[in-house]
């Protein structure tokens, strides 16, 4: 497991566009949006969060693109299968690495921007945690989408799993509303943590079955 995490993180480290790209796009969208419309600061604060949510969706979409594609194309997946006899650990460590090195920084950027747009500074941690958790959920879902259509350009699969991201968005929306109005945050966040554990345990299982079907 540790070996896999080491391998995945060094591979990701050298793939500059995979981790820097999503972060840049996140920053770009979050800065470009207020510039592109003529709107008062007061109005902006009311719906700036939905921009954050949408760009979160978009960037996690981008970040997971080609997550398994490269390993499938160059035959690394087969080699891993020979060593592990299973993809569970491979998938688990890959998602872990991607969430740590792309998902969490993106959530951090989102939290900083939200704080610049009218969220009280004391809520920074709350926003950051809920964004990170929804990134964990989204990465798991989109990784599944990627694995589905691995040899046909991962976009198709991600699009077919996009509907599944809807509950995550609803949940994140509720979490943010609870932060804004200052009640019920704890319940929502514990629900998200629970879902995070559940999905992180089950999704890799499903993804590894999918990958196995592909190399078959």
């Amino acid at each position: 497991m540790f070996r896999l995490i080491k391998i995945e993180s060094s591979k990701l480290f050298y793939k500059l566009k995979s981790w820097l790209g999503p972060m840049l796009i996140m920053i770009l969208v979050l800065t470009a949006f207020p510039l592109s419309i003529d709107i008062s600061q007061f109005d902006l604060e009311k719906f700036y969060f939905s921009i954050i949510v949408v760009s979160l969706l978009m960037t996690s979409f981008l970040a997971t693109e080609g997550m398994f594609e490269e390993d499938f194309e160059d035959g690394s997946l087969e080699q891993e299968y020979l060593v592990e006899q299973d993809f569970y650990k491979v998938v688990l460590s890959k998602i872990f690495v991607y969430v740590c090195f792309i998902g969490v920084p993106i959530a951090f950027i989102g939290a900083i921007f939200s704080f610049a747009n009218g969220v009280a500074i004391g809520n920074f941690i709350n926003v950051f945690v809920s964004l990170s958790l929804s990134n964990l959920l989204l990465f798991n879902l989109f990784a599944f989408g990627n694995a589905l259509s691995i040899n046909k350009g991962a976009m198709l699969g991600v699009l077919t799993t996009l509907p599944l991201a809807l509950p995550v968005i609803i949940l994140l929306g509720t979490a943010i509303r609870s932060i804004q109005y200052g009640n019920g945050f704890l319940e929502i966040i514990s629900l998200m943590i629970g879902m995070g554990f559940l999905i992180s345990a089950i999704m890799p299982l499903i993804i590894s079955t999918t990958l196995k079907t592909h190399i078959d």
Partner: peptide, 12 residues
């Protein structure tokens, strides 16, 4: 095992 795919990373 080595198949017809090289299983090496060409960005490394």
């Amino acid at each position: 095992y080595l198949g017809h795919k090289n299983a090496i990373k060409n960005y490394l």
